[in-house]
Each structure stands twice: as structure tokens, then as C-alpha cells.
């Protein structure tokens, strides 16, 4: 029996798509009995609550406060802890977004709870949760249990398909903001710069086109036509981001975003372990690389040994023929 609290993030006044992976994980956890509730916390949470009432939660708890306007973990943590305690929840689950990774361990520490991060699977077994999580850049999986009465986990978005609505309408209740953590007095939110992109987020995209080092300053001019045609998100290798040819938030890999789209194009990507760690869960992988020995071909379903500067435009033309 688990009494699970799912923490849902808000983006642009709506429940963030990534958070539906956490709902999917919560459904797995309560298969052995129990129930889950959803907490929507943030400025504008009251409006976003409607997005999550049809997912089978016992209730949707709303904390809507201007103090939660920015994702500063010292502002959120006390509220997450207060809701966990007052509802006697024994599991807290979030998606391992950049915010989830920031705040979940802090919440765990406040609760004296063990924290398993970025998990790829969970199974209820008696009163226990058997957790599976990738390690060593995805080259091994660890099977673990959290030994504390309260358990906190973050789930890898690419490993849990977003929950679909199950119908019904969970009751919505409002709970007050628990106030800032004392440490919040020493943190000031200065600003958030986001790339002004019309494209889907890397975590949500069904198709991703990722470019590597050889693209250099032609990163956008070569990949944009392909991405636009496919409605794809654009990603980049670490080398390309480090060299300043692509913004850091586009980095795919162990240290960047971990993705598993339906279709992944690796363009001029050699296939370093750290990159593979971020994309090898993709359903179909296409690689374009000049070097026939590039390690990317060992994981690609379809590979073309070719110069990307001719192959990518040719691919665009071929796709246009429909």
C-alpha cells in the first residue's frame, strides 16, 4: 500500500507535459494497493489544476501563491514538505526535469527520506517499491530500495510514457503556501532566459534532429530545414554547445537532456558514450556520418556514410517529395 503524492510543475499556466510521466510512475506504484494525489504548486496553479483532474488521483491539491512564481527551490521545498506531512504521504514523486532534480533532494532531506533520482522503472512488491535506475551513463541499471518510511523519487521522463487521462474528476482542494525556507532570504531570482523557439521541447518531441561538431556555425542553417519539415525538436552534441555554436539547453547526453523520441536523427555525431547515454532509448535512430567506423553506427537502425552537408539537404528534398 502506497500513499503517493505526485508533484506537478506548471509552465505557461498549464501542467507541464513532463509531469505526466510522474503520474504514470505513481500509477505503477499503487498497483499493489493505495492511492495517489496530485499537488499542483505555483503561481497560477488554480488554473492548471483542471489539466490533471481526469487522471485518477484521489484528489488534486492546489497551492497557488505569488511566492511560487519562479522555480526557486528554497521557495517551494517547505510547501512540498508541509503537504506531504499533512496528507501522510509515504512516497513523493516528481519528474527529473531541471526543477525536479533541484528541489526533490532538498525535500527528501527535510523529510529525512531516502531519494532515488532519475529512475527508469518502479514496481510495487508488498509494501516495498522495487526501483530500477540507470547508472554509469546507462551502461548498467541498479535495482534498489529506499529504506526510509517516506521515500522521494524523481522519474526519467523518457522512460515513462506520459499518463493518459482515465476519466472521472478528482476533487480539488486548496492549501495555503507554507512560506519560504529560511535560506530563501539569501537567494534572489534574477532572471530566466529561454530560447525563443516555436519548436517542441526536447523532452516532449516525437522527432529530434541533433547535430554534432562538424556543423559548427552552420548548425542552424543545415538542420533547421529538416527539423521544420518534420516538426522536430533540435538538439546538439556537447562539443557543439561547448564551442558556442548551439545554446547549452539544446545539449543531448548524460550531462544534458535525456531523450527517447520515436525518431532520432544523429547528424555528424560520432557517438561518444556520454552522448549515447542521452539518446539510446530512442525508438528509431538514423545516423549520418562521414566516418564508417563512428560508434554511432553501432546503435543506429539506419546509417548513411556520407558528408552531412550534402546528405541533409538531399534528405530534405526527398522528404518534400512526400
Amino acid at each position: 500500500m502506497s500513499n503517493v503524492l505526485v508533484v506537478v510543475e506548471i509552465a505557461g499556466g498549464k501542467a507541464r507535459k513532463a509531469s505526466f510521466s510522474a503520474i504514470a510512475a505513481a500509477r505503477e506504484m499503487v498497483k499493489g494497493g493505495g492511492a495517489f494525489a496530485i499537488l499542483v504548486a505555483g503561481a497560477g496553479a488554480a488554473g492548471a489544476a483542471a489539466d490533471v483532474v481526469a487522471y485518477g488521483a484521489s484528489k488534486v491539491i492546489v497551492v497557488d501563491d505569488a511566492g511560487l512564481a519562479n522555480q526557486v527551490c528554497e521557495m517551494f521545498a517547505p510547501t512540498l514538505v508541509a503537504v506531504t506531512r499533512s496528507g501522510a504521504f509515504d512516497v513523493v514523486v516528481m519528474t527529473a526535469t531541471s526543477f525536479g532534480k533541484d528541489v526533490a533532494p532538498r525535500v527528501a532531506a527535510k523529510l529525512g527520506a531516502g531519494y532515488a533520482s532519475d529512475i527508469s522503472g518502479v514496481r510495487a512488491e508488498g509494501g516495498k517499491l522495487v526501483i530500477r535506475r540507470p547508472m554509469f551513463a546507462g551502461n548498467a541499471y541498479g535495482v534498489c530500495e529506499i529504506t526510509t518510511p517516506v521515500r522521494v523519487v524523481s522519474v526519467r521522463q523518457s522512460e515513462f510514457a506520459p499518463a493518459e487521462p482515465s476519466g472521472g474528476s478528482s476533487p480539488v482542494e486548496t492549501t495555503p503556501f507554507a512560506g519560504p525556507d529560511p535560506a530563501a532570504a539569501r537567494v534572489e531570482f534574477v532572471g530566466l532566459e529561454t530560447g525563443k523557439s516555436e519548436r517542441p521541447d526536447l523532452g516532449d518531441a516525437g522527432v529530434i534532429v541533433t547535430g554534432g561538431r562538424p556543423l559548427k556555425e552552420r548548425f542552424a542553417s543545415v538542420l533547421d530545414p529538416l527539423a521544420n519539415l518534420l516538426g522536430a525538436a533540435v538538439g546538439a552534441s556537447r562539443a557543439l554547445c561547448d564551442a558556442g555554436h548551439a545554446p547549452p539547453e539544446l545539449q543531448v547526453g548524460q550531462t544534458g537532456r535525456i531523450v527517447a523520441p520515436k525518431l532520432y536523427f544523429a547528424i555528424g555525431i560520432s557517438g561518444a558514450i556520454q552522448h549515447l547515454a542521452g539518446m539510446k532509448g530512442s525508438k528509431t535512430i538514423v545516423a549520418v556520418n562521414k566516418d564508417p567506423e563512428a560508434p554511432i553506427f553501432q546503435v543506429a537502425d539506419y546509417g548513411i556514410v556520407a558528408d552531412l552537408f550534402t546528405a541533409v539537404p538531399a534528405l530534405v528534398e526527398e522528404l518534400k517529395k512526400g
Binding site: A18, Q71, V72, T97, S98, F99, R186, V187, E188, F189, V190, G191, L192, E193, T194, G195, D201, L202, G203, P247, P248, E249, R257
Partner: peptide, 14 residues
């Protein structure tokens, strides 16, 4: 300057 999903978030910490 923190690297977050979709951009960069700047905090001033004392």
C-alpha cells in the same frame, strides 16, 4: 547562471 530545461536561470546567492 544555472543551465535549466529550455534556457538559463540566473540566481544571486549570498
Amino acid at each position: 547562471g544555472r543551465e535549466v530545461d529550455g534556457g538559463a536561470l540566473t540566481l544571486k546567492v549570498t
